[in-house]
Simulated assay, not measured.
Amino acid sequence: MEIIVIIVLRVLLITFYAFAGIYHFINPEFYYPLIPDYLPFPELINYLSGFFEIILAIGVVVPKTRLLAVKGLILILIAFIPSHIYFITEGGCMSESLCVPLWVAWVRLVLIHPLLILWAWSVRKTNKV
């Protein structure tokens, strides 16, 4: 039963990050406001983030690269922490289309973000499935 749960979580994680990565290319304007002003080259940051999310999602599929890909996803999630903090310092509103109550921004940083890291770590087993 445990292996079935891990497989389901793995498939969901792969789908989640593949879609998120593709969305960086489909709608980059969504991500630009989330990139802190103090970081140079927001377009490059956006496209690299999307590229690595796609590549790492594919890496999770392959048993030989799964552990490395999971570690890569965790590093990306850690790298995104300044963006979450920036979102909070801006009051949870980056544009008319991206505006949430401040408590939601805090929940994303303090609860959701660690759960995403835990989710990635939970699918790291490199069994042949």
Rank of each mutant, 00 (worst) to 15 (best):
residue 41 F to D: 14
residue 113 H to C: 00
residue 72 G to N: 15
residue 25 F to A: 01
residue 3 I to Y: 03
residue 44 L to I: 11
residue 66 R to I: 06
residue 14 I to H: 11
residue 2 E to W: 04
residue 89 T to P: 07
residue 39 L to Y: 12
residue 29 E to Y: 04
residue 44 L to M: 14
residue 55 I to D: 14
residue 99 C to I: 06
residue 52 F to I: 05
residue 71 K to Q: 14
residue 60 V to E: 13
residue 52 F to W: 13
residue 114 P to A: 02
residue 99 C to Y: 11
residue 95 S to V: 02
residue 37 D to S: 10
residue 120 A to M: 06
residue 119 W to K: 03
residue 68 L to E: 10
residue 123 V to L: 10
residue 57 A to S: 09
residue 56 L to T: 04
residue 20 A to F: 11
residue 114 P to S: 02
residue 129 V to C: 00
residue 79 A to H: 08
residue 47 Y to H: 07
residue 82 P to M: 08
residue 66 R to M: 05
residue 113 H to T: 09
residue 18 A to V: 00
residue 3 I to P: 02
residue 108 R to L: 00
residue 74 I to M: 13
residue 60 V to T: 05
residue 56 L to S: 02
residue 125 K to H: 13
residue 69 A to F: 04
residue 19 F to W: 10
residue 90 E to T: 00
residue 61 V to S: 11
residue 55 I to P: 08
residue 114 P to D: 09
residue 111 L to T: 13
residue 79 A to E: 15
residue 64 K to H: 03
residue 95 S to E: 13
residue 13 L to D: 12
residue 117 I to L: 05
residue 1 M to W: 10
residue 1 M to E: 06
residue 50 G to S: 03
residue 91 G to S: 04
residue 51 F to L: 09
residue 3 I to C: 02
residue 67 L to Q: 07
residue 37 D to V: 04
residue 69 A to P: 03
residue 47 Y to R: 08
residue 23 Y to L: 06
residue 42 P to K: 13
residue 102 L to S: 06
residue 6 I to K: 11
residue 11 V to A: 15
residue 33 P to A: 14
residue 97 S to L: 13
residue 118 L to W: 11
residue 25 F to M: 00
residue 74 I to T: 10
residue 81 I to A: 13
residue 37 D to Q: 06
residue 95 S to A: 12
residue 72 G to L: 06
residue 13 L to M: 12
residue 52 F to V: 07
residue 103 W to Q: 03
residue 89 T to Y: 12
residue 18 A to G: 00
residue 90 E to R: 08
residue 12 L to N: 13
residue 92 G to I: 02
residue 80 F to H: 01
residue 14 I to L: 06
residue 104 V to Y: 08
residue 2 E to N: 08
residue 104 V to S: 04
residue 24 H to I: 01
residue 61 V to C: 13
residue 117 I to C: 07
residue 54 I to S: 03
residue 119 W to P: 02
residue 97 S to G: 15
residue 58 I to K: 05
residue 11 V to G: 13
residue 64 K to Q: 09
residue 54 I to N: 11
residue 93 C to Q: 07
residue 42 P to Q: 09
residue 16 F to C: 15
residue 68 L to Y: 13
residue 54 I to Y: 14
residue 49 S to N: 03
residue 6 I to H: 07
residue 101 P to Y: 07
residue 54 I to A: 01
residue 104 V to Q: 09
residue 23 Y to F: 12
residue 61 V to A: 15
residue 46 N to D: 03
residue 126 T to D: 15
residue 49 S to H: 01
residue 56 L to I: 00
residue 100 V to H: 08
residue 42 P to I: 02
residue 23 Y to D: 15
residue 64 K to R: 12
residue 18 A to Y: 01
residue 72 G to Q: 08
residue 64 K to Y: 05
residue 78 I to H: 10
residue 16 F to W: 10
residue 127 N to Y: 12
residue 122 S to Q: 04
residue 57 A to H: 11
residue 83 S to L: 01
residue 75 L to M: 14
residue 40 P to R: 01
residue 10 R to L: 00
residue 18 A to K: 00
residue 88 I to S: 14
residue 120 A to D: 07
residue 18 A to E: 02
residue 99 C to H: 05
residue 11 V to R: 15
residue 105 A to F: 07
residue 129 V to H: 01
residue 76 I to E: 14
residue 121 W to E: 11
residue 63 P to L: 02
residue 45 I to N: 06
residue 29 E to R: 12
residue 2 E to H: 03
residue 33 P to E: 14
residue 81 I to R: 04
